[in-house]
């Protein structure tokens, strides 16, 4: 039963690639936004907080549609990207990664923000008296101390990106080999007669990947935790 067809393999590797690119791509902006929300007071902070969390509460199809309007080949940002850099996102796997990154962004930012808020700022003060400028304080003190939150955020982001369906299919459709992820493939198989076996195989794969990711993150967080508090 677990003999996978080439199409199914493609859907699996494509899903992993999209989720990985989405997670790594969202990371720099996620760090910045989490830091701003945790540490700075500025005009429009509540608005930024709201914007970050919007994909969590909006219907995914709405997010996908907004992405299509903005990043489609005739969209404001999409047309600009194609004209200037030759980058096309609509109906490409890179577009799927963008949709996943937007949808998973709140899950990346939240644990990071909590970690940054939990850091004892007196340690950062101590580092600055020892000669570390702001960037070095961040790199050698704040970021390592926020490592458990960073791991949790990245795993949540990856898992969400792996399972994203609504926004992705709205923005980049369901093209085998290009934008058909595991979720989209399962959906497709359930729509055709005799597709149950294939859908079942992919369902099992999806469960296995999710479990491995969770166990791995638990292990990494524990290791990071003992590094912080152990002897």
């Amino acid at each position: 039963m677990l003999e996978l067809t080439p199409d199914e393999w493609t859907a699996i590797t494509l899903s992993l690639r999209i989720a990985l690119v989405a997670t790594l791509g969202a990371l720099p902006l996620g760090l910045l936004v989490a830091w701003l929300l945790a540490r700075k007071n500025f005009w429009g902070k509540a608005l930024l907080d709201g914007l970050v969390h919007l994909p969590l509460v909006l219907p995914p199809v709405v997010t996908g549609y907004l992405l299509l309007i903005a990043f489609g080949r005739k969209g404001i940002i999409g047309a600009f990207l194609e004209r200037t850099f030759g980058i096309v996102l609509a109906f490409r796997w890179t577009g799927a990664a963008l949709a996943c990154a937007v949808m998973a962004f709140p899950l990346l930012v939240r644990p990071l923000r909590l970690s940054f808020e939990a850091i004892d700022r007196k340690l950062e003060d101590a580092a600055s008296t020892l000669g570390a400028n702001r960037l070095w304080v961040f790199l050698t003190i704040s970021l390592p101390l926020a490592l458990p939150g960073l791991i949790a955020g990245m795993v949540l982001c990856f898992a969400k990106a792996l399972g994203e369906f609504g926004a992705t299919i709205t923005f980049v459709s369901n093209i085998p080999g290009e934008t058909q992820t595991i979720s989209a493939a399962i959906y497709t198989f359930t729509q055709i007669p005799g597709g149950d076996a294939a859908a079942g195989r992919l369902v099992i794969i999806a469960i296995v990947i999710a479990l491995v990711a969770l166990v791995l993150s638990e292990w990494l967080s524990r290791r990071a935790g003992t590094r912080l508090h152990g002897e």
Binding site: K122, A126, L147
Partner: peptide, 13 residues
């Protein structure tokens, strides 16, 4: 300027 704080403030990691 070297600063020794009341609570040490050693870097735990």
């Amino acid at each position: 300027i070297g600063y020794v704080f009341q609570e040490g403030r050693l870097f735990p990691h």
